[in-house]
Design a protein around this nucleic acid. Structure first.
Lengths: 192, 192
DNA sequence: GCCTGATCATAACAGTGTTATACAAATGTC
DNA sequence: GACATTTGTATAACACTGTTATGATCAGGC
C-alpha cells in the first residue's frame, strides 16, 4: 500500500470512528489525509471504495467476536463470551456496525470482496454453533447459527432504533445472553 | 389537511414506494406533487418532516401485522400468522421498513411523535405475547415480546445485508416461524 | 379595509460526490 | 540518457442535494 493510500485509509477510519458516517465526506477525508480529493479516486474507487474498505473492517470486527479465549468449554459460558464480545464490539465500532447493516449510507453497494466478509463472519459463527450443538446435522447447525445471529443482531438493532425498548445496559446484555442460551438449549432438545 | 399538503404527502409516498429513499429528493417530491419546493418547508418541516410522516407510516405497518384475524386461538397458529404477516409487510413496504431501522437515511432523526409510533407497535406485540404466555408476569411477557421481535427483525435484517445467508424464500419464512415457535415454547417452560 | 400570518415561486446558498483539465512524477523501452 | 507511456496530483467545474432568502400573493380576523 502506497503512502498516500495508507494516509487516506487512516484518515477515513479516524473520521468514521469519531464522527460516524456523516463525518465521511470526500473533502474531509482528503483534508485529514493531507492530500487532494483526487487521491480518493485514484487509490480507491471514490467514496464507494472507502466505504467498501470500512465495510470489510466492520465484518472483520464481527468475525473476531466469534473467537473464544482458551479454556472456555462450557456451552453456556461460551455463549455468554461470544454474546458479550459481540455487544462490546458493536459499542466500540458503532459506525462500522451501522455500515454493514446498511444504515445511513444511501448509494453504497458493497463489492464482491466486501460481501465475502459477511460470509466469512458467518462461517466463524457456524464453527461456534457446531460446538454448541455437537450432535446435530450440518443443516441444523447452519439454522442454529442463523438464529443465534438473528437474536443478537435483532436485539442490537431494536435497541438502536426503537427508543421505547431502552433499558439498563447490563439488564439488556444479560437478557441477550439469556435469550441465546434458552434458544440454543431448546434447539438442542429439538432433534429431527 | 390542506390540498397542497395532501398532494405532497401522496407524492412522497408514491416516490418512496416505487424508488425507495433515493427517489425522495425535495425537488422530486415537489415536481411529483405539482408544487414548488417551498411547500415541503411550509407544510412539513422540510425533508425531515416528510421522513417523519413516512416513519410513522412504517411503524403503523408493523403494528398492523400484530393484529390477528378472528378465529386464530392456537398459539402456534397465531405465531405463524403474525410472523408471516410481518414478513409480508416488510416485503410490501421495504422502503418504510428500512427507514424505521435507520437505513440509508443520514441526518434523519425521528420526532417525538414518530418515536411514539415505535412504542405503539411494541405495545401491540406485547398484547400478542401476553396471549402466547398467559401465565407469565408482566416482566416476562415484556422480555418475550422483545425476544420475538428481535428474532423476526434479526432475520429480516440479516437477509437484507448478509448475502451469504440468502436461501429460498419459503424455506426462510418457515425457519422464522419455527424459530419463534421454539423460542416461545422454551420461554413458556422457563418460569421464574 | 387593514393587519398579520401563512403560503407560494424563484433564486441563491453551502454542501455533496464526481469528472475534467493541465501538469508533474514515476516507470518502461530503446 | 532520451523519449514515451503510465500513474498520480492540484484545482476547478459540474450536477445534484437540502435549505434559506426574497418578494409577492392569499386567507383570515378584527
Amino acid at each position: 500500500m502506497s503512502d498516500a493510500k495508507s494516509k487516506i485509509m487512516q484518515a477515513a477510519s479516524k473520521l468514521f470512528l469519531e464522527g460516524g458516517y456523516k463525518a465521511l465526506s470526500v473533502r474531509a477525508i482528503a483534508r485529514e489525509a493531507g492530500v487532494s480529493t483526487i487521491g480518493i479516486y485514484s487509490h480507491f474507487d471514490g467514496k464507494q471504495g472507502i466505504l467498501d474498505a470500512l465495510y470489510i473492517e466492520g465484518f472483520a470486527q464481527v468475525e473476531a467476536t466469534c473467537a473464544l479465549p482458551d479454556g472456555v468449554t462450557d456451552r453456556d459460558a461460551a455463549i455468554e463470551t461470544v454474546v458479550r464480545q459481540y455487544l462490546r464490539s458493536v459499542q466500540a465500532h458503532e459506525a462500522h456496525y451501522r455500515l454493514i447493516f446498511g444504515e445511513q449510507s444511501p448509494d453504497f453497494s458493497p463489492s464482491e470482496d466486501a460481501r465475502k466478509a459477511g460470509a466469512q463472519a458467518f462461517a466463524r459463527l457456524l464453527e461456534r454453533s457446531a460446538e454448541f450443538l455437537p450432535d446435530h446435522s450440518a443443516d441444523e447447525v447452519r439454522n442454529a447459527a442463523l438464529e443465534i445471529w438473528a437474536l443478537i443482531h435483532g436485539f442490537v438493532s431494536l435497541r438502536q432504533h426503537v427508543t421505547a425498548l431502552k433499558t439498563q445496559s447490563t439488564d439488556w446484555e444479560d437478557q441477550v445472553v439469556r435469550a441465546v442460551r434458552i434458544h440454543v438449549a431448546a434447539l438442542d432438545q429439538t432433534r429431527s
